[in-house]
């Protein structure tokens, strides 16, 4: 498979990349890890005339703590996220999701920014960043702006990123101390993409759920927050009865095209994900950190 001809440019700074992008935003694409874009180019589904490589821009790399947030450069690979002490301490859900993406090669090359901007509705990361209330730092010709992850995904492969803009970093608020997290997915047997992926963090005191967020990917036409389910869980005992009632509520926030298989799959995976907390509490004591 050959790509259509294109011009390759390697940017040294964000300003340079934005400047090049401004020349012809409709026919240029930003190249990050390339593990989604290049396959599409080889299928000739994508035919950008100019590829702007942001892989050498040091400002876009790395993970650091900024006050109450963990700030992750857009060109940070899944592997760096999985191995990051900051992520594992303050927002382990992100590492748990990144750990399940693709294979070793994809995790070594693929980036969080690339995944979010590509906006494949079957990507893993959206479940985690939605549950974690991420904020996106975006730069364009008219300066910098921040955008909540809520409202970033508009349709499959379509985001609120304007053609001339670049995602520069993802800001994730630190989770409350003692929060329990899990990412559970049903991978497609051929592609590894989630048929459904459920990302959850919960805080629990004396078996009662204080707070928690749930992000779900893969199963609807867009990744989504299961807000009805979150509201239901708050203030309830985390026990078998609550989990049994909770399972079906995730579908309230999703468009599943009335597909009974999807409805069932979603319910099963939400139930299993919540049950994992029950098991980890049984093993480690209820208020312990999992």
């Amino acid at each position: 498979m050959y790509t259509a001809p294109f011009e390759y440019r390697r940017a040294d700074t964000v300003e340079q990349a934005i400047g090049w992008l401004a020349n012809d935003p409709e026919n240029s694409k930003v190249l990050a890890g390339g593990h989604s874009l290049l396959p599409l180019m080889k299928l000739v589904l994508a035919q950008p005339q100019v590829l702007i490589d942001i892989g050498r821009i040091t400002a876009l790399k790395g993970i650091r703590i900024e006050g109450d947030d963990v700030q992750i450069g857009a060109f940070t690979t899944y592997r760096e996220i999985v191995e990051s002490p900051e992520v594992n301490e303050f927002c382990p859900l992100l590492a748990q999701a990144a750990q399940t993406v693709g294979d070793v090669q994809v995790r070594n090359r693929g980036t969080i920014g690339g995944s979010l901007c590509h906006a494949d509705p079957q990507a893993d990361m959206p479940a985690a960043v939605l549950a974690l209330d991420a904020e996106l730092l975006i730069e364009g010709p008219s300066g910098q702006r921040t955008q909540s992850i809520d409202g970033f995904f508009l349709a499959p492969f379509i985001t609120s990123l304007a053609p001339g803009e670049i995602l520069t970093a993802v800001k994730i608020p630190k989770l409350p101390a003692g929060a329990h997290t899990t990412y559970l997915k049903r991978p497609h047997p051929a592609s590894g993409y989630p048929l459904v992926g459920v990302g959850i963090w919960l805080t629990v005191h004396d078996q009662v759920i204080d707070n928690g967020h749930i992000g779900i990917t893969g199963i609807a036409d867009l990744p989504f927050r299961a807000r009805h389910l979150e509201d239901f869980l708050k203030g309830r005992l985390l026990d078998a009865a609550t989990i049994a009632q909770a399972g079906p509520l995730a579908a309230d926030d999703a468009n599943l095209d009335d597909d009974p298989y999807k409805k069932n799959l979603l319910q099963v995976y939400v139930t299993r994900a919540l049950s994992q907390f029950g098991e980890s509490f049984a093993a480690k004591g209820l208020n312990g950190k999992s």
Partner: peptide, 17 residues
């Protein structure tokens, strides 16, 4: 064609949008 291999669900999501 190739675009159909993306899966009908995504195409209908895009078409709705």
């Amino acid at each position: 064609g190739t675009i159909a291999s993306m899966g009908q669900r995504m195409i209908s999501g895009v078409a709705n949008y």
